[in-house]
Nucleic acid binder design. Structure first.
Length: 940
RNA sequence: GCAGGGGUACCGAAGUGGCCAAACGGACCAGACUCAAGAUCUGGUGGCUUAGUGCCUUCGGCGGUUCGAAUCCGCCCCCCUGCACCA
């Protein structure tokens, strides 16, 4: 069959008939969904349920990727050029369109590229309303985004503050992971910078991750051989390493170096320690690293293994103490101060761990590192502050940490200092530092009122699959203010600081509302789209006539836009990848909540799994991509669609394996072709149930139960389950029906083909449409409705099951008895009393209890009279009682009699159907083995 | 580290208290068809047994609850995703 021309034919037909260009229809319920696989399936399914379905498509081109690609092409980057010319099949002479400008790049990739995304989506037959297409750099769209941010600003949700970022001093730009050649994934740590005042007024500064341990400070460490710098910070003078000064410049503009001081000059002095207002000595240590923190370290021997060991080393080294003219007795008298208690390590964690690990001196760096991690971890999770910690006594460490930090900063005894978790290097080769951006704009997702309201919205939404709800709830809990502007990239200019651009996650949260009017607003000049205009369209504020006059926009058009938004909203599902739950998906719920009234938000979210290719992550930079266009070309779009859905449910990770798909396709194609051949022999007359034989009733019942299963699965967005029910499972039933049937019913054929076409339509629209018309329909299959009330015939299904089991059992016995070709097969159905016994057991026995079963059997006089056999049967039935639950008696004798010709044909010999108690032919005494639903078998 | 999701036979993957030695698909093996290959069909794929059976071992590990656990509870190990300026 020529599936390819079938695709073209129906795509043309749909376009002509405007099947996927919905107009407002008040008689139909609106169903609005976003377009990305697999929504088209859900969209089409809802059409078949009689809803008016809108599915638009847009292009999110904000941010840096487009710019980066254009720049790479401009400088002729080989890899990038190769990617575009080979992977995306772009002719070399067309590259000039890509390098001309980001806008030209976008235009070309969307509309001109033969293998571009749009072409691919069209090829897949997605059914998108292209009239509503938008790009995030469209002028009108940008006006809409401006409006959005003005609404947020008015509510106080746009705020300004500082923000630490990873920053390349050479490129003069913040850097993300993809900009790095080393240190991907390393984050920013927030250190507390403690200030220790010298008698002379200057401060020695030390960075720590454990501000709560200030209560255990006994001294501070400094490297005698190192030259420190003196820095002017406001009115204060700080002493720290040169490396620190260089880094801190980016976090505190305006500081300057005003001198230097040798570490050894500071040894032996006393400083006033922050948080405890006690004087402690400055002592020498070799482990202070100028590159880490400030090169000065505060010493808490109770909870920092290195401090403890260094202190002990010093106390044992009188010569060293004398060298620096230290008071030996005083130093020796220093003792760790217990401050934190954990069940595992007691009150002096560092000492305990050093002893356990048998750390001898400062040179055992690896062991010290291990000890530090252990103490830190336990202390943080299980530690409780003790009575030496003043008002923080009895507080868990993880809580005290924040409070102590806050207090120290408020008392100006400390400040914040940001440090990278490790060495991070930009692609340009420069080492990355942390810079604090002063004028960073934020969206205040931390706002308690907003959070509350957003949680309410979430509470009323449908999350598919449901198991992700807790994740959303957690995200909502910890979501903090999110920076929303940046200096580089495509996108909308930030209204209050035009040199900044709204970043990509900021302009993609309520665009769904824009789609409802995208086709109408296209020709309205952007400059007319002032705040009030959108206020009217989306919030129904103001007077239309006045607005129309004031801005020179057609009043009818304004009303139409208003009506369109009102009709299509709320959105049925917002859908995106699972990894976007912590940002895009949650932001979208927040922003809908902030801007729109409760009845115009979102009804649900659909969370989709990743697609991996042959077991590896898809990545265009690594060349591990496959274009949907190429796939459709090769396999046919209906088949691509089918297998995209067939592997896993939408939210699970899908591994596209070409070989497996190709194998599966041939089977599927045969099935489809078989259905087409059935479609040649149909009659649309009504089914006459009373005239159908057992097999036909069975097939009819199976079709109905599969449609039921399909419908149920579709409602739960279990697309794979739905698809399998209607394809592979039905395929099996069809095969059995073909084998079993005694005559052909055109009506039943019609019933089968019609329902198959309907159910498969969301998945394989072209094939469905072809089938639909083949059996005589004149309108699009998408104008039809799925059947709703479906009956099944339990007796027919049980009867056929009996035949299937008998066939399997006969084969089994044949094999075991080593009878290649039996001459005669005799089947004996069970006596009435056995059914009677089964009924009793079904009523009285809830678990497979043999003793109880025999008791029940013997309580009935008639059954009891059968003696040993009765006990035996009771035993066998009891062990299968759960399996037999709910099975009702059928007339096995009649069923088998009807199937007799079939059985004789199948096994190529005479088949006798006998009743256990009436049989005259039972040479081996097999008849007594008969059980309900399990006739006895004898063969020779 | 924190949060969320997982670990099932050779592989992918169903299965949430007894119909489970575990659906379905792939791979593999045997048989049928064929000159042959491919395609297709039939059967098989934990072990031992057997006229359609029965028993033993198995669902990341270890313990527990239960007459009964892949499924429920506790602890542990491993994998995936996200953790914010990357869309």
């Amino acid at each position: 069959m020529d599936f390819k021309s079938m695709e073209e034919k129906w795509q043309k037909y749909w376009a002509e008939q405007k099947v996927f260009e919905p107009e407002i229809d008040k008689n139909k319920q609106a169903f609005y969904i976003q377009a990305a696989y697999p929504y088209p399936i859900i969209a089409k399914y809802n059409m078949l349920k009689g809803k008016n379905v809108l599915m638009p498509m847009g292009w999110h081109v904000s941010g840096t990727p487009v710019i980066a690609a254009v720049e790479a092409l401009q400088r002729g980057d080989e890899k990038t050029v190769k990617m575009f010319t080979e992977r995306f099949h772009i002719p070399k002479e067309d590259l000039k369109y890509l390098t001309a400008s980001p806008e030209s790049f976008v235009e070309y990739m969307i509309n001109k590229a033969k293998y571009g995304y749009k072409a691919g989506f069209k090829k897949l037959g997605l059914g998108i309303d292209w009239r509503r297409e938008l790009k995030t750099i469209d002028e009108q769209y940008q006006r809409f985004i401006e409006w959005q941010y003005k609404k947020l600003y008015a509510k106080g949700y746009i705020r300004k503050g500082h923000y630490p970022v990873r920053y390349c001093p050479n490129c003069r730009n913040p850097v993300g992971d993809h900009d790095l050649s080393e240190g991907e994934g390393l984050g920013i740590q927030e250190f507390t910078l403690l200030k220790f005042r010298l008698q002379s007024g200057e401060y020695l500064v030390a960075a720590t991750l454990r501000p709560e341990t200030v209560f255990g400070q006994t001294n501070i460490w400094i490297r005698p051989d190192l030259e420190y710098v003196i820095i002017k910070v406001g009115k204060e003078e700080w002493v720290a390493s040169k490396e620190f000064f260089e880094k801190f410049q980016h976090q505190k503009p305006g500081i300057e170096k005003i001198g230097t001081v040798k570490g050894s000059e500071l040894i032996g002095k006393e400083v006033l320690a922050p948080g405890i207002e006690r004087k402690i000595p400055v002592l020498p240590a070799s482990f202070c690293d100028p590159k880490t923190g400030t090169g000065i370290v505060t010493s808490v021997p109770s909870d920092a293994p290195i401090d403890y060991i260094a202190l002990r080393d010093l106390q044992n080294d009188e010569e060293l103490m004398k060298k620096y003219h230290l008071d030996v007795e005083k130093i020796k008298a220093i003792e760790p101060i217990p401050i934190i208690k954990t069940p595992e390590l007691g009150e002096l964690a560092a000492i305990k761990v050093c002893e356990e690990l048998k750390i001898k001196n400062q040179r055992e760096e690896e062991k010290l590192e291990e000890a530090k991690k252990l103490v830190y971890k336990l202390g943080f999770h299980k530690g409780i502050m003790n009575e030496n910690c003043g008002k923080y006594a009895n507080m868990p460490v993880n809580k005290a940490k924040e409070l102590v930090k806050k207090e120290l900063i408020e008392k100006r005894e400390a400040t914040k200092f940001y440090e990278l978790e490790g060495r991070v290097v930009c692609r340009c080769g420069t080492e990355v530092i942390v810079r604090v951006l002063e004028n960073q704009w934020f969206v205040a997702y931390s706002d308690p009122k907003w959070k509350e309201e957003a949680k309410k919205t979430l509470g009323g939404m449908r999350i598919v699959p449901g198991l992700f709800r807790t994740q959303y709830e957690n995200v909502f809990e910890w979501l903090e203010d999110k920076p929303c502007t940046r200096s580089k990239g495509l996108g909308t200019k930030f209204p209050w600081q035009k040199e900044l651009v709204l970043e990509p996650l900021a302009d993609s949260t309520i665009y769904m509302a824009y789609f409802t009017i995208a086709h109408l607003i296209k020709n309205v000049p952007a400059e007319k789209l002032e705040e009030e205009v959108f206020d009217y369209i989306f919030l129904n504020k103001g007077n239309v006539s006045k607005l129309a006059k004031k801005y020179g926009i057609d009043e009818k058009l304004l009303k139409e836009m208003r009506e369109s938004f009102d009709y299509w909203y709320p959105l049925a599902y917002n859908a995106s990848a699972i990894e976007l739950i912590p940002n895009h998906m949650s932001f979208s719920i927040f922003q809908h909540t902030a801007i729109f009234p409760p009845e115009k938000r979102q009804l649900g979210t659909l969370n989709l799994g990743m697609v991996v290719l042959e077991g590896r992550k898809m990545s265009s930079s690594k060349g591990n991509v496959v274009l949907i266009n190429d796939l459709c070309e090769l396999l046919g779009s209906d088949f691509v669609r089918f297998f995209l859905m067939n592997f896993v449910e939408p939210w699970e990770e899908m591994n596209w394996q070409q070989r497996e798909v190709e194998k599966g396709i041939s089977r599927l194609k045969r099935f489809i072709e078989e259905i087409f051949s059935i479609a040649k022999n149909v009659s649309s007359g009504k089914l006459k149930l009373e005239k159908m034989d057992c097999v036909e009733k069975w097939f009819w019942s199976r079709i109905n139960s599969k449609i039921k299963e399909y419908t149920q699965a579709m409602e739960n967005i279990e697309l794979r389950r739905a698809l399998q029910a209607i394809s592979f499972q039905l395929m099996k039933d069809l095969a059995w029906y073909n084998k079993r049937k005694m005559k052909t019913s055109k009506e039943l054929n019609y019933y089968f083909v019609k329902n198959f076409a309907l159910c498969i339509a969301p998945f394989m629209p072209h094939i469905a449409e072809e089938l639909w018309h083949k059996i005589g329909n004149k309108e699009s299959v998408f104008k039809a409705k799925l059947p709703e009330k479906l009956e099944t015939d339990a007796k027919a299904e049980q009867g056929e099951e009996l035949i299937m089991n008998i066939v399997a059992d006969i084969n089994q016995v044949k094999k075991l008895a080593k009878l290649e070709k039996p001459n005669k097969i005799v089947l004996y159905t069970a006596s009435a009393w056995k059914y009677r016994l089964l009924e009793l057991l079904q009523q009285k026995l809830s678990e497979p209890n043999v003793g109880e079963a025999i008791k029940i059997a013997m309580s009935d006089g008639k059954i009891k009279s059968k003696g040993n056999l009765a006990a035996n049967v009771a035993k066998q039935l009891a062990s299968k009682i759960i399996e037999l639950k709910g099975k009702k008696e059928i007339d096995e004798f009649e069923v088998l009699k009807e199937a007799k010709p079939f059985l004789e044909k199948t096994f190529g010999c005479e088949v006798l159907i006998e009743k256990e108690e009436k049989t005259e032919y039972d040479p081996k005494g097999k008849a007594k083995n008969a059980l309900p639903f399990k006739p006895a078998i004898y063969m020779e």
